[in-house]
Write a protein that binds this DNA or RNA. Structure first.
Length: 275
DNA sequence: GCCCAGGGATGCG
DNA sequence: CGCATCCATGGG
């Protein structure tokens, strides 16, 4: 049961919703756990999420935004149950239960996942935070993610100062060509066309494009294959030697419309249980 | 010092 | 198409 009030959403435990898994499964970077609550930033908006007994409460001045952001209109009971028809172990299903694919801002997702390439989550988070401090607008809750206009005004030296390494050149090149119209047109075209368009952009290859399709464009058939998912393919599924491209096609064909959520279950399971 | 991290660009066959 | 190599940076 989900109760939406003017400044608070209350989610009871009969809903498939785990705030810890949803934020830490690698799809989003601008959050911290502090003072027994999650603090979350998206665009220029802010929310605090607290688990109180059996309920999860989302506090924000922008409740409608976060209601959509957390995909609370979607039936995750059906989605989670549908995954039982696939070749996933009980432990993977239980481990991933409660993860939701967030409805994030397209521009923020593109920039974030350009930074993510061959990088680790901890460092991705700190680079993005410095980006917000460097180019975003300060408000009472911290720094907003830079708008497209603010981002485009970034100098090469500013991007290099973020500690993004060689990715700073991709960010700068992307800043030279991105526009509101470009992003709006990407939203309006087919998944395959959008994927091709994304891959043509600087710093975006097949894996980052699939993350953008899944996290920024709501295309549930996308199945990003990174080093962790590649490990799952070989170690859990016992797959034969294949290219990442082939692994992505194999899983996407198998899971269909459930590709995105299945990928998150597998990624989260492998990254948390490896070692 | 080496290896790895939510890989991409480039060049070469 | 597949494959090798290079690419900054910080943590283990």
């Amino acid at each position: 049961m989900i109760k939406k009030e003017s400044k608070c959403i209350t989610i009871s435990s009969d809903e498939i919703f785990d705030i810890n898994k949803t934020l830490t499964c690698g799809q989003v970077f601008r959050f911290i756990y502090q003072d027994h609550m999650y603090k979350l930033w998206s665009k220029d908006k802010f929310a605090r999420i607290i688990v109180e007994g059996t309920c999860t409460k989302i506090y924000s001045d922008d409740i409608d935004y976060f209601y959509n952001y957390f995909a609370l209109k979607e039936d995750y009971n059906s989605i989670h149950n549908a995954l039982h028809h696939y070749n996933l172990s009980k432990s993977i299903l239980e481990f991933g239960r409660g993860i939701r694919i967030l409805h994030q801002d397209l521009f923020e997702v593109i920039v974030s996942f350009i930074i993510s390439a061959n990088n680790n989550i901890k460092r991705i988070q700190s680079i993005i935070e410095r980006l917000c401090v460097c180019l975003g607008t300060k408000n009472v809750d911290g720094y907003a993610f830079p708008t497209i206009e603010q981002f485009c005004k970034g100098t090469e030296a500013q991007f290099e100062s973020l500690g993004a390494g060689y990715r700073s050149r991709y960010l700068y090149k992307f800043a030279q060509i991105v526009s509101v119209d470009m992003l709006e047109s990407i939203k309006s075209i087919s998944t395959q066309e959008a994927r091709t368009k994304l891959i043509s952009l600087p710093g975006i290859g097949p894996k980052v494009a699939d993350c953008v399709l899944l996290f920024g464009l709501g295309r549930a058939t996308a199945f990003p294959v990174d080093t962790w998912v590649e490990k799952v393919y070989y170690e859990v599924f016992g797959g034969k030697k294949m290219t990442r491209k082939s692994i992505a096609e194999y899983f996407s064909d198998y899971f269909g419309d459930l590709s995105g959520i299945a990928q998150q279950y597998l990624f989260f399971y492998k990254r948390e249980t490896d070692n």
